[in-house]
Design a protein around this nucleic acid. Sequence first.
DNA 1: CCCAATTTAATTGCGCGCAACTGAATCGGG
DNA 2: CCCGATTCAGTTGCGCGCAATTAAATTGGG
Lengths: 144, 144
Amino acid sequence: MSPEDFLRLDLQLCFPLYAASRAMVQAYTPLLSKLGLTYPQYLVMLVLWEADGVTVKALGEKLYLDSGTLTPLLKRLETLAFVRRERSTEDARSVLVSLTPQGRALRRKAASIPEAIACRTGLSLEELSRLRRDVLRLFDNVSK
Amino acid sequence: MSPEDFLRLDLQLCFPLYAASRAMVQAYTPLLSKLGLTYPQYLVMLVLWEADGVTVKALGEKLYLDSGTLTPLLKRLETLAFVRRERSTEDARSVLVSLTPQGRALRRKAASIPEAIACRTGLSLEELSRLRRDVLRLFDNVSK
DNA sequence: CCCAATTTAATTGCGCGCAACTGAATCGGG
DNA sequence: CCCGATTCAGTTGCGCGCAATTAAATTGGG
């Protein structure tokens, strides 16, 4: 097998990963559009539902996204009245992002989504958990 | 465990998949930029290296991308002189995409990439193969 | 205390992805 | 042989991702 054989699309890991990631996001999309959210916006809301009042930097560290992505996304969430953004008085360099009552209320409407998606995968909870662990290991290796 | 507990970021499969996919693309980026390609452009080249002279539709079916993504991408590859685009004489609705000599030559320069990436993953060939299989199964389930 | 280095968010520019739509070409039932 | 339905590529619009840069605030060494 020559080195060029490894260029075969069907032998690479990245493409299935890339296709699966997009397919998963597409599975979320109709559920999220009922809430008025995109998938990346939903990820931000997931973080805020666990830890309200975080900085843009902290959001970026959790989601591996930079301010170039987050700033306009957060402005859209602010326009939708799900979050507020305010300069920190402690450190005027940072911006604190916090939930509005509407943003907090959205959590209940989103509660049914994870199970619906888990069903769509056709995998058992054990298989899902194992795959998540394997993909996380891959992520750790590649991103360092 | 209440339904809302499943909203925890660390319990979901999609986010690791999404993060891992982006991290993989970032691992490719410095290697591909030496060739003047982006990752989606590289995917198109992978298809063309296996099957030259395909329609935009066929490319889309292999890569799960539509003309809204492919048309401008192919125009950029054409500007880079890696591909040609021409209306089919058989069926004037379709456009045939084929490699230029430069596009064909690029294959040799890309030959070292898959192994370099495989190393970056830190996984054995068996683990890579198994993970690819699992991710493909997920993709099949979710995308249907 | 000062000022150079660092940190933080915002901005700019570009290339995807994808939904929605357009227009041209082809197909196929009657 | 029509003409309505379908197929195909292209276009438009929008929201990411991310690299590169900017500007403001903070930090910390001397």
